[in-house]
Design a protein around this nucleic acid. Structure first.
Lengths: 329, 329
DNA sequence: CTGTTAGCGCCTTCAT
DNA sequence: ATGAAGGCGCTAACAG
């Protein structure tokens, strides 16, 4: 059995309440003499506080839970770092749980492990909840905030980039370099994110006097495989001179598939990636990207949890980072 | 306030004990009629069990905690998937907490958030604890197991590849291809892992009749930057025809730095990477690697937690995967 | 400054 | 098949 404050109390010859006080550093409520005794006893017994018990009585917790949709994503590490740093600055602890990317049952289980214990807030990274699971989340009396994902329904608190703008600027980067026939690869057509990026892409095209063509867009789930498939679908003779890819991984898929098709990047094909993670600088040529500020998303998420009443739909800025995959025509 | 079993009891007109029983599915102890009433009431109140309270009384938990050393690593995702799947198969939940890679204080805080609440076991991914923090961990009455890291001290439960063998086989892969002057890059010289890989590397060299040279090894912390630095230290004219890199990220660093030095891979320089994550197939040329079985490490870790008395030092098999960075001389 | 008392939400004998 | 009672480890009044 682990030692409890009662054990300490007995050993130190004081009451449990006193032990609780010195262990909680309520300095106004005990003298130095007892403090000594108590701390010595605690040390000798190898005492570890049972936080669950403490949280049960105080009705509050200092842990924030992060629900992540899949182990595969790599941008999540930046968001998590932002969360971690900001949480630490506020004396908060962070725990992470993985939910399946689509499986509603896995999603539900992840939510439950988080909801069924005392957490002060929940951050959901790029998670698309089923209506049932959303109800579950809202039923819990816990502040929450979606990160890196936005909704048509304006009531859900979220922090994300402006997806329309992302699509627009990515496309414009190519347009400015003189490209006219531009593809959009591995962006999904179901989600808010995908639809807005598509809309931004089309607007940019139209603003430049280019009429979007249906076969220029090859939807997909933002993965490496989706990028490869999209590029394979275009083929070597599509006439496209530029492609906007839905994520860094997708961009690498496009890049590698281009190579397999005998296309050189950026000579034969220019690529603009969306996300701007470290991946962009690991591959050759380095990917020009519309970079999101994931770190700030995480940081803002924590702050949002701290003041749940504030403005709920936040937008983080993006910027285009020119590297090596856009050729000026 | 969230609803409690008392609220349900009142609404359903039964006692809290009965509510507890039907909610826990103790089917032998209640009739279908009451079950109906209770479940209806629970649903209406949006009841969520307070797991912390339940764990407080039952003195056990079904969550296993994973401590990860940094957000940057990418092999951890495979281990976590292995953990996740195996845990789910046993009805266990998984939470993850990040500890700083070296900062002892961050390490300590991560450990505490995990130790100070009821978890049935702790898995530590590639974590090197300070003696104090190790004592802390051992002081907690919780089973634990280190993953992807081994120790000279044979008493600590751990599951990892045989690092000597990793070093040996990586080097041998190059040797077999006819290389003689072979570097070892971005392996640290302090840890068990690093020292054993180094020893394996030297043994392979000697077994092939090659005398290791001091300037063939450029230690580092397994990172992309370390890989780049190691290669930069070798320079373009080292005479090395092959390099073993300490991790996939390090290998990519070596690869990119080689390119900057004007060396073509594998024509001028062959590379064998250690880890074998998906990264190997994303870069060009694809990295030949000594691949570790991270998924199984995670799975075995969960099993180890379940039977803490069994054999404590386990080794998972490795295999070399030939891709495109080793040229046969 | 310190001890006593009560109770957080839940589970579990022990009766009935 | 169900209720009453006690207690898990801790903290928060309330007395003193």
């Amino acid at each position: 059995m682990a030692a409890t404050i009662k054990d300490i109390a007995r050993l130190a010859g004081v009451s449990p309440a006193t032990v609780s006080r010195v262990l909680a550093n309520k300095t106004a409520f005990y003298g130095p003499a007892t403090a000594q005794k108590v701390q010595a006893a605690a040390l000798k017994l190898g005492y570890r506080k049972n936080t669950a018990a403490a949280e049960l009585v105080t009705q509050r917790s200092n842990v924030i839970a992060v629900v992540v949709n899949s182990v595969k994503t790599n941008f999540s590490s930046q968001i998590i770092t932002g969360i971690q740093d900001t949480a630490a600055a506020h004396g908060l602890n962070v725990i992470i749980v993985y939910a399946g990317i689509v499986d509603p049952e896995a999603q539900r289980k992840a939510l439950l492990t988080v909801i069924e214990r005392p957490v002060m807030g929940i951050l959901l990274l790029s998670i698309n909840l089923t209506p049932e699971n959303l109800a579950l989340l809202q039923g819990a009396q816990t502040p929450y905030c979606f990160l890196s994902i936005a909704f048509d329904d304006g009531d859900l608190p979220s922090i994300a980039s402006d997806d329309w703008q992302v699509g627009y600027e990515a496309t414009q980067t190519l347009l400015k370099a003189g490209h006219r026939k531009i593809g959009l690869a591995a962006v999904d057509s179901d989600s808010h994110t995908g639809r807005f990026r598509l809309a931004g892409y089309e607007s940019a095209l139209r603003d430049a006097g280019v009429t979007p063509q249906a076969d220029w867009v090859q939807p997909g789930v933002y993965s490496y495989a989706a990028g490869r498939e999209a590029m394979a679908a275009y083929g070597a003779t599509s006439g496209l001179t530029g492609v906007v890819a839905g994520s860094d991984m997708a961009a690498i898929g496009v890049l590698n598939q281009s190579r397999d098709l005998g296309l050189r990047v950026p000579n034969d094909l220019s690529i603009v990636s969306i996300d701007g993670t470290e991946m962009c600088e690991l591959v050759q040529p380095q990917l020009t990207s519309v970079s999101q500020n994931f770190y700030d998303m995480g940081a803002a998420g924590v702050r949002q949890l701290l003041e749940p009443d504030k403005q709920s739909q936040q937008v983080t800025p993006i910027r285009v980072v020119d590297r090596q995959t856009v050729r000026v025509l």
